[in-house]
Design a protein around this nucleic acid. Structure first.
Length: 254
DNA sequence: ATGGCAAAACGTTTTTGA
């Protein structure tokens, strides 16, 4: 069983990439972030034609998440019931006995911005809800764009980035509080190449120079971590014409 | 001179992202 996450930066623009990628990588579950589509505009038919069931919740212009699955999707929950939020950033569903959470964590903009406070508050509520979810669903996987690089090795230039949004101590502490629930970063369960990133700036030849960050993660409960045999980042679609700035992350669950 | 892309929207520019 393969589960994956990919911030597509507009599903309207990237639908051909998603379909092409799924053809080459027929994962069982794909969590998508930044669809930027209201539900009435969601391309469900095209995705179903590719052999995937789909659940989604979106809004105009910003945010929006979806779960694509080759296996039946049940018990869909939109958003965090513990946190009033107009922004569509969370979708949860049960697939093949696993509880899958697709999350698009707020960006935060900059540490002195109001959006940074929103990010930290959102993450605190996310933690509280995941605590409950972890109790209820031992087979829990939380996939998404966390907008946090957990450690300096997840940052191409830690000195230049020091203290900035996406790497600040408070954000990293919020991510650690998710780990304290028993959720493990699937990528770090394995030996990985140095300078492995999941996002590269469109500007200044970011991808070509590998000036990136690792901010897209798959967190697994202890029961799922024990079944996980691989976790990789697929850089291929970042090389395609008109790419998303993020690459997919894929975990294999035995 | 905080630039440098990319996407979306009541667009001949602004906001947001990371």
């Amino acid at each position: 069983m393969k589960i994956a996450t990919w911030n597509v930066n507009s599903l309207n623009v990237r639908l051909p990439h998603v379909l092409k990628w799924l053809e080459a990588n027929p994962v069982d579950v794909l969590c998508v972030q930044e669809t930027k589509l209201t539900d009435d505009k969601f391309p469900a038919a095209a995705i179903e034609a590719a052999g995937y069931q789909v659940a989604y919740t979106g809004q105009k212009t910003y945010n929006g998440v979806a779960i694509l699955s080759r296996l039946p999707i049940t018990d869909v929950v939109k958003n965090n019931p513990r946190y009033e939020d107009a922004q569509q950033r969370i979708l949860a569903a049960t697939i093949d006995g696993m509880r899958i959470v697709c999350a698009y964590v707020p960006n935060g903009q900059s540490v002195d911005s109001e959006k940074y406070g929103y990010k930290l508050g959102w993450l605190a509520a996310f933690r509280d809800w995941l605590d409950e979810q972890a109790q209820q669903y031992p087979q829990l996987a939380v996939l998404g764009d966390y907008n946090i690089a957990p450690e300096d090795r997840d940052v191409h230039d830690p000195v230049a980035w020091a203290g900035q949004v996406l790497v600040s101590d408070q954000e990293r502490a919020a991510l650690l509080r998710l780990n304290e629930l028993g959720l493990k970063d699937a990528f770090r369960l394995f030996e990985q190449a140095d300078k492995s990133f999941s996002w590269w700036d469109y500007r200044q030849l970011g991808f070509r120079l590998n000036k990136g960050l690792r901010i897209d993660h798959i967190l697994l409960s202890p029961a799922l971590a024990a079944r996980c045999s691989a976790c990789v980042i697929d850089r291929e679609p970042r090389k395609w014409e008109q790419p998303s700035d993020h690459a997919p992350v894929i975990a294999t669950i035995d």
